[in-house]
Every structure is written in C-alpha cells, then in structure tokens.
Design a protein around this nucleic acid. Structure first.
Lengths: 353, 353
DNA sequence: CGATGCGGGGACAGCGTTTCCCGACCCCCA
DNA sequence: TGGGGGTCGGGAAACGCTGTCCCCGCATCG
C-alpha cells in the first residue's frame, strides 16, 4: 500500500541500503555487475520510484527550476515556457511554474514559495526592475538565494543579480518607430508605461523618442494592461479618439502596443467596432509571437528569438554551480539579443497596399 | 551563508525545535502567546524560510500538483494552465509543469518524475485514453499512484482512473457539423484521427457521423499535427486539393480542424496562399480559445468553458484525501461540460455575408 | 611467504521537519 | 491543603535517501 522504498528494494535484493542506492543512482562508485543486476531486477519487480524529496534533502540539490512569468496564457510567455520546460526536462530536472499577474506582492509570494521548495535555479521572465526602492524585498530574496548557491537568470531585462538575457527594448522600439515614420506614418498613439513594468515603459519610451527625433508627438497616450483584454480596452480608446479626432482620411493612426498579445486583442476589438486595420488605424506589437505571423492582417512587430532566449536561460540555469570563478570573459553576466523589425500588413499604408 | 534552519530560529528564540515548529506552521497545538511572538520575531530576524522538502518528507505531503499538458504554447493548454496555476497557488501549493509533446514515451517519463516528486495530485489535460494495450504502463502508474493516496484528475476525457471532467467531443462536433450543414455547407474536409489522441479522433468522428447522417461524405481527409504548424500543413493540403478539385464556385470547402490552434494556423497559411476564408474555404476549430474571437475572420468553433474546467480540476485535486467514502452521489467520478457551437465568420457563406 | 593495495560491500550519521509522548507546572475543586 | 485534570514545552524518533568511513577479502608485489 505505501510506496515501495529503497530499503524494500535492498532487502528484496539481499544487499545493503548503500549498495542499492549506488546502483539505482549515478553514484561515483560503480557496484559489481552481478549485484547491480540483482538490484535492478528487484527495483523493477517492486516498481520502485525514488523519493525525490528525500534525495533532495540528502543531496541538498532539488532538481527543481523555478519559472516565473507574468501570465502563462500570454503567447509570449507560453512560447518561452514551452522551450524552458523541454530543456529542463531533458536534463532530468523539473519546472515549478508560477505567475505574478504583474503584481509585486504576488511575485514576492511566488519567489518565497520557490525558495522554500529549494529550487536550484530561478528563471524570471519579463520581470520587474530590481534594485529600485519598491521592490527591494525581491532584490533581497534574490541576492540571498544567490548567496546560498542558487542561480538566477533573468529573461528580458537586467535584474541587478544573476545573469540576464536582455533585449534592448528601447533601441528596438526606436528602430520600429523610425521604420514606421519612414514608411510614411505621421499620426501615432502609444500605451503609457505601467508602474513596475519597466520593459513596457522602455518600449514605449524608445518608440516615443524616435518620434520626437522625427519631430512627431503622439496624439494619444493611454494606459492599458499588457494583456489581450488590455488590447480590447486600448481599441476602445482608439475608437473613441478617432470619433473626436478623425484626422485626414489618408493618414491612419498608428498604434504601438508594447506586447503582441495586446496588439492582437486590439486588432480583434477594432474590427468588431468596424475600424479598418490597416486603413483607418495601423497597429504594431512587440515580441514576435507565432500568432503574429498568422494574424490577419499580419502583425507588425519586433521579432525576438524567444526559443533561443529560453534555451540560453536554461543553459545558464543548469550549469553546475562549481565554476563560480570567472564571471567575466567566457562567462558573461549578460547576453544581448537583437529584436528584428518585422513590418507586417497591420501597418501598411494605403499607398503601399 | 547556508540557509537558516528551524533549529537556528529555535535556538535564537530560546525554545525547542518542537515549539518553533508549532509556532511557524499551522499545528493543531497552539503555543503560548508570549513564546509564539518570540519565535516569530526570531524567524523574521533571521529570515527563516521553511525547507519544503524536509516538510514534505516529515508530513508525507509535498504540496505539489503535477500538471501534464501536451504543449504549453498551445492556447488551449495555456489558458487552462493559467487558471490551474492560479488556483493551486492560492491554496499554498505549487504546480509542477510537464509537457508530453503528444508522445507516449515522454508522457511516461513525465509521470514518473512527477511521482518521484511525490506530487499530491495529478492533473492531466487532453491526455491519451488509458486502458488500451499500448499505454497500459501509464494506466499502471496512475493506478499505483491513486492507491497510494494520490489524486488523479483528467481534463478533457475519461481516464479510467481518478475523476474526470469530460466534454462529449463527438456530440459537440456532431452538433457543429449539423449546424454547418444547416447553414448550407455541402463540401467538407476533415483531419484524420491521430494515433494515441482519441479526443481528436472523437471530434472528427462525431463530425463525420453528422455528415453521414446528412448524406454527405467528406471529400478530403488528411493527417496533420494538432499544432499551429500542423494547421499550416493542413492549409497546404487544402490548397493543393482545391487546385485539383475546385468544385462549384459558390460552394466553399468547409474544413474542420479538431483544435483551435490548428485552425488558426491554417487560417494564416491559407491567406498566405491567397485562399479566401470565408469564400473559397470555410474553417472551424474546437476549443474556444480566446484567440478565436479576436481572429479575422472570427473562428467558428466549439467553445469550452476552459477556466471553469480548470477550476473544477483543481478543486478536485486539492480536496483532502480523507473522504474517500462516497464516490457516488455528491462526489461524482465524472462531470460533463457542454461545448457550445460558436458560429463565426470563418464559416460564413457568401449568401449569408 | 608476508605485507600492501585496492575493489566492493555494509554500517551509520546526517539532511530539516514533524509529531508522538512524556514530564512539569498550574489551576481548580473538594 | 492535597489531588486530579488540563496546558504547554521539550526530547527524540521517524520520514527516505546519500555519502563517508570502515572492514573484509583477494590479488599483487617485494
């Protein structure tokens, strides 16, 4: 009835606990072939499954990786999560999934429980900027974790602790805005930065900076969540704005949503409201989720190599804690990935259609 | 340097290990107020975080829930996963995420590791049908798990073990097909059942059955993965088929993809190939993911209450193992959820446009 | 032929908690 | 004032496994 333990196997095989353990796990000491086979047979027969908790306790290594995302239903995060889980699983470890909902409190709770679970490493995707006043608690948790031998990998932006895979949000958005202006866009709407989510702010910031350089000021800046539903809300605002400020008929309003899922939501809602995209409104996103390429119109966005980023993160998360020596040359603290401007149909101008 | 242990706290507070444990966890015995506060203070001061592994070992309850999905990047699964994680986390437990990639071997490995982690419950989403020859291994694992007090919840179809939240795939698809025929569709293409994924087969099966009742035979049946990319492939086949069998101009070919993500992928690829949807081709999916409503054209699909299903699953997964008595009346082994036919623009007929 | 290795197996002490059991103390009632 | 019941804190034994140390026996070398 109760699960079969290692001692059961050892007894069945007529060997000691130590020997059974050595056989069934990758110990440095390899037992004799005959004994090994006997143990294997017993384990098989009894259906032995090692108790990972007990192993973790004894080894002080849990084989657990904590993954922290804002919202797993967002394709940006789920695309990354997919790859992370696969890689981690391939390395005999497990992924503990947590979501923050973009709430600082939730994130702290999540980190606390991950630490309690003795995760070997933490992969934080699209997180807050640590080191600022408000989230000192998180910074402290992370630093304590690292000091105790845990590995921290940030995906999307710098953490001030651990290693990070960063995209230059501002630069990419700058590039995107420039491209759009070059294409002929003159009227813009952006999403206001969201407190605690600097990456979104950086994106909007870079975008606006490029506009400023081109002598353009966004005619609308509105706040909305970085979710599909936030996109719906954004679309409402756009729609309302268009009623009061239709502008020249041949000049569509170009909307920049700092997350693809938001842009996709906006696309849907705009269409529901009878707004033509492209045509009356252009829209661009950020992230390069697979959905963007299949959308109608195809979504203009910044394409990030999400799978590669995830792989890099896992690689870092899984390196043996041993070589803690040279964090400089061949062991960079930070890697930059480029986001490529992908001009889709969603920002096409009528002259170009 | 090493993490602070309970004994450190006890020592700092000048109490015994037992007392400290009682204070810092919801024990039945409540220690004296003065002592409790002293312990709390010490814990706070030292930054004590309980070692969940050790607790699990001592309590023989890990607080871990194993979530098994085919592909977390599929919005169907990620929508469910979102809700599952939230609910589980709200109950102080954690989610261990695994993906099967629709591979039986991978699923077995995943289950094995989840069992090794001593998960309290298993939530299997869109899994295989157990009890058949090929996956007897999985059935055995699951039954052994349940016998040892683990809870098993299947989401999407019956497992033959544990409790399940089922949708009548065949009936819903039947209804969908009927609705499409009523709308005036006469030419159909379906996706062949995929070995090991009965739910997809059931869906196609129900769909085809309804067609047969209407005296219609699908003119194309093709195999493709239940993924976005499978949808792309499906679109290729459709496109090729249309070249050889264009059919009457006013009668579009209606394609049924047994997963929304597949339908969405097909939508994108068809458009890329210059096929009009609706118009030349109609397309319907299954699942009712949020993306379907924002798509252009909006996707005809069977809308499932994904969030509710997830909540029910977690509720079952978290019930205390105690009341193992009445699996009949108020504790049903199975709950059925209805899928609603949502007719979207993707299957609109020109006469109806 | 005796000493020295070495390979292979076993005993045992943890790993950090929980929990059972026991003893001490206090309060109340007789 | 003494005894009984109830409360509250501590000691210690698990929980299932790993890893260190030790021991035994055999082969090899001097």
């Amino acid at each position: 009835m109760p699960a079969v333990r290692l001692s059961d196997v050892a007894q069945d095989a007529g060997v000691s606990l130590a020997t059974a353990s050595r056989v069934l796990n990758g110990s440095t000491r390899v037992p004799g072939k005959a004994v090994a086979e006997k143990v294997q047979a017993s384990a098989e027969k009894l259906g032995y499954v090692a108790n990972a908790q007990a192993q973790a306790l004894a080894r002080s290594r849990s084989g657990l990786i904590g993954l922290v995302v804002h919202d797993i239903a967002d394709p940006y995060f789920s695309t990354i999560a997919r790859e992370v889980q696969q890689q981690v699983f391939a390395s005999q470890s497990q992924v503990l999934l947590t979501q923050t909902d973009r709430e600082l409190e939730t994130e702290i709770r999540a980190l606390r429980s991950l630490l309690a679970q003795q995760v070997d490493a933490l992969v934080l995707v699209g997180s807050h900027r640590y080191g600022t006043e408000s989230d000192a608690a998180i910074g402290a948790l992370l630093q304590g974790f690292e000091r105790n031998g845990g590995k921290v990998v940030g995906l999307g932006q710098s953490l001030g602790v651990g290693r990070t895979i960063v995209t230059d949000n501002a630069a990419a958005s700058h590039e995107l805005a420039t491209a759009l202006v070059v294409e002929g866009h003159r009227r813009f709407a952006v999403v206001e930065g969201i407190a605690g989510i600097p990456s979104a702010g950086d994106r909007t910031g870079g975008f606006v900076a490029a506009l400023t350089e081109a002598g353009i000021e966004p005619e609308l800046s509105t706040a909305a969540d970085l979710t599909r539903d936030g996109g719906h809300r954004l679309a409402e605002r756009i729609h309302d704005h268009l009623l009061t400020a239709p502008g020249p008929a041949d000049s569509p309003l170009c909307v920049f949503a700092p997350a693809d899922v938001m842009a996709l939501g906006a696309l849907g809602e705009l269409r529901r409201r009878g707004v033509e995209v492209p045509g009356q409104v252009s829209i661009a996103g950020f992230g390069g989720v697979p959905d963007a390429a299949d959308a109608n119109p195809t979504l203009t966005t910044i394409a990030l190599p999400l799978a590669e980023m995830a792989r890099q993160a896992v690689e870092w998360a899984l390196v043996s804690a041993a070589p803690e020596d040279t964090p400089s040359a061949d062991r960079p603290r930070e890697v930059h990935v480029r986001g490529d401007v992908m001009l889709g149909e969603s920002t096409a101008l009528s002259s170009a259609v």
